[in-house]
Design a protein around this nucleic acid. Structure first.
Lengths: 130, 130, 130, 130
DNA sequence: GTGGTCTAGACCACA
DNA sequence: GTGGTCTAGACCACA
């Protein structure tokens, strides 16, 4: 996993959690990787991973079974969707829209770029599958 | 001007420059507010404003006339558009698109939200005009 | 390190970086002193050092490893040489040459003064070594 | 006359004085342009020119005949040569030499660049003469 | 521990 | 008046 410079690493790991849960890869009741293991996999400081886990715990997305590890909660998928959607609609979209206007771009251009982007995504997934 | 906590103040002042130039309010050859004056207007420390000015100078958006002040360069509108567009297309959009997918939203919903947003904007402007 | 009055401190610290990198004392991949530490060593304010680091970062001479510190980039030696040489050839030399003419000095005199200067340098180094 | 950004304007005007006097264009006893006139010619603020004149007066290069104007002193050529030479030998040259070393350049290269530079100068003068 | 940002305020050179 | 630099020191996010 490569990290962007624009966002803090622990938040990018949070995004990684969000997308795994929303995509159904990590299901309620399942164990998530240990802090130590994920730190090794992602090549980051364990403290950084721990920060994400604390955040996930605060939001009731994972729970700690002492001495055993962290597990995805039952309510995780719903909670994550709420969180991601709220931020998307109230923070991200308005900014996208105003930038769109500022640049004098039409909403159609955004739609066509979306389809373009989607086709590259599909391609990448195919490549991964092979 | 109100500042968001998520972004540094000097970068938000940069955004303020960008939108003023893109919207044609600040034209090439025109003088921009003095560092001190803008600091007073925005209620921030002059150093913070200076930081933005140095950044804008590095990007050839403003030039300093010694002892007189800063002026918008001829190339400013083009440069700003480049900068804003590049960031929008390569950083912002991909993230919007993947969030869209993650949430299982259709691109149509985004379009309709755009029109909705636009109508509220128009309203706000009307209110301001009165 | 003593600072001259004719040049700003943060630029003199930049020169210090340049000469360390060109002389091969600071090699690509190596860590440079932390902002705080260098501020203490040079007896200046951390903000002043930070200013140099930001500059060096903009010029791709150092990169930040978040939470860890700054490292010399692979391209640093090449970049520094470019920067120093460009300034030397286009800014410094022409002025030296015109002053030379103005003073009615011959280029030979400059050459002989160079050898003279070099011998004093060698002496100084010997003294330091002992 | 074009001004460099690296040096203050009033110092560049001082250089202009120095070169005119050393080159024998402005001779002892002759009147120099009025502050006002020179400001117009050079397209700078009269205060800036005045600053140069004050400097020149302090160094006994010009004297003020009240109500009439400024005149080149008898000792001007000698004084100017002293000033320029002292600065050149003690400030400029050592820096040039150490940069030369830092860049790993040979003194011969400097000599050849000098001849190159001189030929372009001669050319320019011929063009002006015509 | 690391850097990044900001305030408050000073002092200076310059135009 | 203008910007440019610097100090002193705080507070914060991050690793």
């Amino acid at each position: 996993m490569e990290f962007s410079k624009h966002k803090s690493i622990y938040m990018q790991i949070a995004d990684y959690f969000f997308s795994n849960i929303l995509a159904g890869k990590w299901k309620p009741g399942e164990k998530v990787p240990s802090v130590r293991q994920l730190a090794i996999d992602l090549e980051v400081n364990p403290n950084t991973v721990m920060r994400t886990y604390t955040l996930m715990q605060d939001k009731n997305i994972i729970v700690n079974q002492r001495g055993i590890g962290f597990y995805v909660t039952e309510e995780a998928p719903v909670r994550v969707k709420e969180i991601v959607k709220a931020q998307f609609l109230t923070d991200d979209l308005p900014e996208v829209f105003s930038t769109l206007e500022l640049l004098g771009m039409e909403i159609q251009e955004l739609t066509s770029r979306y389809h373009q982007w989607k086709s590259t995504q599909t391609q990448e997934n195919h490549e991964k599958d092979q």
